[in-house]
Design a protein around this nucleic acid. Structure first.
Lengths: 337, 337
DNA sequence: TTGTAAGCGTTATCAT
DNA sequence: ATGATAACGCTTACAA
């Protein structure tokens, strides 16, 4: 591959001049500029980003740290959104390979060793050392679904609270008064804020809060299945179940059908996430759609803004969600309690 | 962040000596080595990979090019596998942001600009210019599911043919003789080889090939639905349907149930991919599992081998698959034809 | 408007 | 065993 020196020689000018042409400096005559550009074309020259980065102490690289890639159904959509934003920016995405179990591992050193310009962190809890290090090092960082901020760190999350609120409202309007909530563990913001949405929803419609209408289970279909079995054992079981995730809702629906009841006529069920399952399952699962693609786009836009403008204060971004109605909800059997 | 010069000063030796310590050269006395290592610890020095790359013309970076991230359910699993292998290697994964529609875009220039050491390409057909450029440039490359080879390019793919063969064998042994095949478009190796497996299976068991038992549709549940509707219209419809993808199988099952028939008692259905759908759908879908995680691991191992050893000839790797039996297959209604 | 020279953080070559 | 010095490909004062 041709280097800047090759171009300079070919065009009969100095390396500096070529550099100036590449970087669109104004103090180059039209004539030389043209000559240099021709040489660039001819030699198919492409500036070496690494060398450039060495002097500028940048890399035009956004680092990303992903935890539990496999179990998170959103990575690909998030990445697609990020790509979308990156494509217009000249940045590439550097997937940092970190051994989360190695106590010696330091993201900050890793980043500095590669001149990473900014970081996106997804799926790492705020209890973990990594996010805290990043915040402390004041490396421009955007967290996804982790409510952590710092001088150069912000975060983005879907509007979980409002999503569940919309669900409760929908069920209330259908006539439901006995509304249960099945949550995943609440170690992450997503879990906590969804639960808050449920509580707020009850309050808003003057419904009493019963702790036995709340089940906490693992974030999967098995968890939902067991949780629903518990709810069915209740003397006065709910007529509607709000789930903190589609995966949970799948298990809930199975438990209902295995108990000889039907969704939605006997019990209404709503999920969260609008994963592919939701549209494939029968009956189609009503759920809350998070626009992860958009989150991906925005996280990158914000991060690049932060990187390129040191005065840009790190944002807290809340991405709106939308209620997707399918066939898993209807009015309860008897509206009269 | 401390640089090698800082360490040298702190330890009272030359930069060269520090470099020798870092790179484990033998011509350093134990005494100086110890002294230098202490300074390194103290200053929390981490060698700058970018600067090192500039002189070594490497980057300890594997580039990856992903097409249609969103529609491919395997990206996250593939990436997880890749991470697994990368974690022991010192390489990071550089996600190249490419505008596939830009005719000016050149992967090769992109890679050389970033000193990318090797490339993994996934989801890009062999008709596309990008893989061909890579092969021609003799940049170490591994294609996933694209049967393209070159002096420095190999590929890896699941054993699609054998997977379908196992399916046909399974159905044959259950007593099925009227076995249909619903394929996605055959632009990709995966599609073609699966079809070949079907043909080979029929041949192996002396079953006649009927072209009206073969439906080609889009690679989704809609496509499968339409295809199955066509098959049901046949004067002598199949008793078993082999699908080239789980997504297709979902549609096939829906069409069967909408026609008032039942899976598997009336018609057996088998998918391919063992996506999460397969275990969630009712009845559970028998399918073929591809170990994408392992493919991810192996693709990286091979690539790094190629990068670090110029004489390593590019491999063609075929990853074994396994038949997963659930509830969507059983013996046909009447074994007598 | 153009070019010289120093420097970014390393490694490699070659003296000492 | 140790260290000067040049080089990797680029940007940037500063001089001309």
């Amino acid at each position: 591959m041709a280097s800047i020196t090759d171009v300079a020689k070919h065009a009969g000018v100095s390396v500096t001049t070529v550099s100036k042409v590449i970087n669109n400096y104004s103090d180059v005559s039209e004539k030389t500029r043209k000559k240099v550009n021709e040489s660039i074309q001819l030699l198919r020259y492409e500036p070496n980003v690494v060398a450039r980065g060495l002097v500028k102490r940048r890399s035009w690289t956004i680092g990303i740290l992903l935890h539990n890639i496999m179990t998170n159904p959103f990575v690909s959509e998030l990445m697609a959104g990020m790509q979308q934003s990156l494509s217009k920016s000249g940045y590439d995405l550097l997937h940092l390979t970190a051994d989360f179990n190695d106590p010696e591992y330091s993201v900050v050193r890793h980043c500095s060793s590669r001149n990473v310009d900014g970081m996106v962190v997804f799926g790492v809890g705020r209890d973990n050392k990594i996010p805290l290090d990043l915040v402390k090092a004041e490396l421009p960082t955007m967290f996804v679904d982790t409510d952590l901020i710092g001088r150069r760190a912000g975060y983005i999350t879907a509007d979980n609270r409002n999503g569940i609120l919309m669900v409760v409202e929908h069920l209330y309007e259908l006539g439901h008064r006995k509304i249960a909530f099945v949550s995943g563990f609440m170690g992450y913001v997503a879990g906590r804020t969804r639960f808050e949405g449920y509580q707020q929803g009850l309050k808003q419609f003057d419904l009493p809060y019963h702790s036995n209408y709340v089940e906490v289970c693992s974030f999967d279909s098995m968890g939902g299945y067991n949780a629903m079995q518990n709810l069915l054992k209740l003397p006065d079981p709910p007529t509607a179940v709000v789930c903190a995730a589609d995966a949970i809702a799948i298990g809930v629906m199975n438990a209902i059908s295995d108990a000889g009841l039907r969704v939605p006529t006997d019990i209404s069920v709503v999920g969260f996430d609008n994963t592919a399952f939701a549209s494939i399952v029968k009956p189609g699962l009503s759920t809350v759609n998070q626009n992860i693609f958009s989150i991906g786009e925005r996280v990158v836009n914000q991060l690049i803004e932060m990187v390129e403008n040191p005065d840009h204060s790190p944002p807290i971004v809340v991405e709106p969600v939308e209620l997707i109605l399918r066939e898993s909800t209807c009015a309860p059997r008897s509206t009269t309690q």
